[in-house]
Nucleic acid binder design. Structure first.
Lengths: 195, 195
DNA sequence: GTCTATAATCAGATAGAC
DNA sequence: GTCTATCTGATTATAGAC
């Protein structure tokens, strides 16, 4: 990995973000030093500051980009249709996205408390946008009588929490295929909301 | 809080554990210094080492005690009966316990990666014991035909993840009473497993 | 049992050479 | 664009006074 002096802006920038993501996901933001990130990339710690003003901004930019990417991906995946069809699209999207990008999602959930108050507000707003998408679907289904829910807000939190669980246990090449896992979670979600 | 020299072993020990729990829950193990814990208790950092050999052991002892306390509490709360009755007892216990001791549970989930490998193994074993209790109930219900589950293992993870969600949003004095929250989660859990 | 003082190390971040 | 060297301050943990 070690490398001599030279210009590699195009690869070093993304490499830093990738290394930081991997290390933050594994050990947590506070436990990872700038020197560790640099070593993973193959540069010295000082070189990192050509790409980020400080460690906090490195975390914040990463989380903001990840949340925005997730929101954009959902905007592309969402469909028109009945509340039940919309919910199925969401469950399948969410499970798939969490399996594909578990480090990003893991950091987005675990490192909220390591953001400065101002940065936290920004990320929290994006997170609420994402939650709002689910709450809209559940509200539509509740109003139309398609869903039976004791409490829309709690159901939203419960559904998301249930689905998020997949990222804590899923490992590539495990017992269950991605499609099978999608199907299992969709079966459970359907039962949770059914009228 | 500040206090002069004197002997207060009976109160300082518990005070350290309480302060560490609160601070670890709020900011994370790696982001909390021994000085911060000491300041919260009203002593100097050196005094902490009369009560713990090091910071890692402080975390490990706390997590082990918390997991064991949770397991013991469940042993007292669990009942005989049909799988459905046993599941109801578990859901109500779990939600109640998470609401009552959210800091303990939060630390137990968030700080696993800050344990040394040996300590992690111990805590992980206790966590698996707890999960095993749920998996047993679901297996019984599946075998008897009371529950309809696509995959017992995934259902176990999904149920626990869904219930754990309560600790991320519940706040004392909020919109919903504890009994109401128990009921809502039990309704959702029941729908998730119903045949 | 707690304090003060300190050792030893490591953190984030910057300056200037190449 | 990266490195070496360094600044400044914080960290865990210990030793010895009281």
């Amino acid at each position: 990995m070690a490398r001599k002096t030279g210009s590699h802006a195009e690869i070093t920038g993304p490499a830093i973000r990738a290394a930081a993501l991997r290390l933050f996901a594994r050990s947590g933001y506070a436990a990872v030093s700038m020197r560790e990130i640099a070593a993973e990339v193959g540069v010295r710690a000082g070189a990192l500051y050509l790409y980020t003003p400080d460690k906090q901004t490195l975390l914040y930019d990463m989380m903001r980009d990840n949340m925005q990417r997730a929101l954009e991906a959902w905007q592309l995946a969402k469909i028109d249709g009945t509340p039940m069809q919309q919910l199925e699209a969401f469950v399948r999207f969410h499970v798939n996205y969490h399996v594909d990008r578990s480090d990003e999602i893991f950091v987005a959930y675990m490192e909220l408390r390591n953001l400065t108050p101002e940065n936290f507000e920004q990320i929290e707003a994006l997170r609420r946008d994402y939650e709002g998408e689910v709450e809209c679907i559940l509200t539509d289904g509740y109003m139309s009588g398609d869903f039976k829910l004791a409490d829309i807000r709690v159901s939203t939190m419960a559904l998301i929490a249930m689905l998020n669980g997949v990222m804590t246990w899923y490992r590539e090449g495990g017992r269950l295929s991605r499609v099978r896992i999608q199907q299992i979670y969709w079966d459970m979600a359907k039962q949770m909301v059914q009228a």
